[in-house]
């Protein structure tokens, strides 16, 4: 088993290849890896309640993918805690750095 950190900085409504990241997260988790997806910048947009990606994020959580969103990116886009999809937890750069300081973790930026 490996640990993966997938950092999504892109808006799926703007970049069609975000689906690749979601599918990769699901696939990695499905075969027994520990996967965290960290949403930052426009990558946080699908985590808004009512987004067409809400169900997609729900599916990821069913595959035990941990979903985190950068607090500054959320607040810049007026997405408050109550607007956030339930499966997504608010996070920050401190937590991102803590994850990155795991020498067994494989980080991938998209």
């Amino acid at each position: 088993m490996s640990r993966y950190l997938l950092i999504e900085s892109r808006d799926p409504f703007d970049s069609r290849d975000c689906d690749w990241l979601y599918e990769t997260a699901k696939g990695l988790s499905k075969v027994g890896n520990e996967v965290t997806v960290f949403f930052v910048q426009n990558g946080v947009l699908p985590s808004r309640k009512g987004s067409r990606y809400e169900n997609y994020l729900h599916q990821l959580s069913l595959y035990n993918v941990k979903l985190l969103a950068d607090s500054l990116s959320l607040s810049e886009r007026a997405i408050s805690d109550r607007h956030l999809v339930a499966e997504v937890s608010i996070s920050n750069m401190d937590q991102l750095v803590d994850l990155l300081m795991d020498d067994q973790l494989k980080p991938i930026w998209h």
């Binding site: 910048q41 500054l72 920050n92 750069m93 991102l96 750095v97 990155l100 300081m101």
Partner: peptide, 28 residues
């Protein structure tokens, strides 16, 4: 922590995020 960055100034939010990551890492 090593970071490789490629975007020029004032062109991408990625630069700001990179600065934020470096800042957090140094503070820790």
């Amino acid at each position: 922590l090593t970071l490789a960055i490629m975007d020029g100034p004032y062109e991408s939010t990625c630069s700001t995020t990179a600065f934020r990551i470096i800042d957090a890492a140094l503070r820790k």
